[in-house]
Amino acid sequence: MRAQLAAFSAGGIGDAVRAVSPGLIACAVVGAASAFLSDHYGGPVMLFALLLGMAMNFLSADGACRAGIEFAARQVLRVGIALLGLRITGAQVVALGWEPAALVVGGVAATIAVSVLAARVLGFDARFGLLTGGATAICGASAALALSAALSPHPLKERATLFTVIGVSALSTLAMVLYPVLTGWLGLSDAQAGLFLGATIHDVAQVVGAGYSISTPAGDAATLVKLMRVATLLPVIVLVALGSRAGAAQGERPPLLPGFALGFALLVAINSFGWIPSAAQVAGSELSRWCLLAAIAGIGMKTHLRELVTVGWRPVLLMLGETLFLAGLVLVYLRATS
């Protein structure tokens, strides 16, 4: 990556573009194929991008595509995360009132804290618990990618990120199917069901699908609560970046505030003032989606399936436990306030 930046600074923009183009095109093709499969056959698009990328991992070996795949997995990823800020405004958060806000903040904090402790008990590095807990508590695969980008370098970070994205996507899809049935079985109102779905299901798309499968009011409430969870991504990233900076050696400390987090905050602020036209919001959100798809395809291309097979049952148990903990926490809140 330093070599690529040096090429840009030296005026070799054309050379740098040619160096990354084959890999970027490969990632874009995998992303497009994943979107097609998701649109026509259902299923989480991020999971499709991961699996198709892993099937093409031979492209990440030394060759024409390697530089572009690295670029997609790092730089394109950060652009996609920053553009997530176009999804939310301060008014949306305020409209929900303080009680759902307190539930969201408390749920995110408690889930991450429990995840870190559980990871330690199961013999993992605390950063793995932070990664899986943040993905479960905030916004699924997008949060996993954002937190991974903010964490300090580690030899197993990409493997942990890939496993987290696969696990959280699978659990989110399962929750989308089962949770609406659970809300009916428990006799929750539309407002309560929307709050439960928005506060517990991992990915935004699955929240929307589950909420509107019950009713329009439930879907609206679920979407707003979910967007509030997405809004917690910024403070969590800042705290993670501060922790990574404090734990790193003097010469390798990451920036105090990652550039993608700053871009995320800036877009949320601008969007909150209504300065971004609706057409630009839609276009930016779609661009964010494609950037994240290309990035996760690149991460998949860099990973071999046999590396995931060796993880064992403990990571699966950790992520399942995090999901059940968050769902139980929200149900206790609903019972206490009903």
Rank of each mutant, 00 (worst) to 15 (best):
G14W: 02
V17D: 00
S21C: 10
I25G: 07
A28S: 09
V29M: 14
V29Q: 03
V30M: 12
V30N: 03
A33R: 03
L37W: 06
H40D: 08
G43L: 06
M46V: 15
L47S: 03
L52E: 09
G53I: 10
M54F: 11
M54H: 03
M56K: 01
F58Q: 11
F58H: 13
S60M: 14
A64V: 11
A64Y: 00
R66M: 01
A67P: 09
I69R: 04
E70W: 08
A73L: 03
A73M: 09
Q75D: 15
R78G: 06
G80A: 05
L84V: 02
L84D: 09
I88T: 10
G90A: 06
V94I: 12
G97N: 05
G97V: 15
W98M: 13
P100M: 12
V104G: 01
G106I: 09
G107E: 11
V108N: 00
A109G: 06
I112N: 04
G129M: 02
L131P: 05
T132H: 10
T132W: 06
I138F: 13
A141C: 02
A146R: 09
A150K: 00
P153D: 13
H154T: 04
R159I: 15
T161D: 11
F163C: 03
I166E: 04
V168T: 07
V168W: 03
L174D: 07
L174N: 04
A175D: 08
V177T: 14
Y179A: 01
G184I: 05
A191R: 10
Q192P: 04
G194A: 05
L197K: 02
L197W: 03
G198T: 05
H202R: 03
H202K: 15
Q206G: 06
A210E: 05
G211K: 05
S215D: 03
P217Q: 07
G219P: 10
L224Y: 14
V225I: 15
K226I: 03
L227A: 13
L234K: 01
V238M: 14
V240T: 06
V240G: 02
A241Q: 04
S244L: 14
G247N: 02
F260P: 08
A261Y: 12
A261E: 08
G263Y: 14
A269R: 00
S272V: 14
F273C: 09
I276P: 13
P277N: 09
P277T: 08
A280N: 03
V282M: 12
A283K: 07
S285T: 15
E286I: 01
S288N: 02
A294I: 11
G300S: 06
M301C: 15
R306G: 00
W313V: 13
W313T: 13
L318A: 02
L318D: 02
M319T: 04
G321L: 07
V330Q: 01
V332F: 11
Y333R: 05
R335G: 10
A336Y: 08
T337S: 07
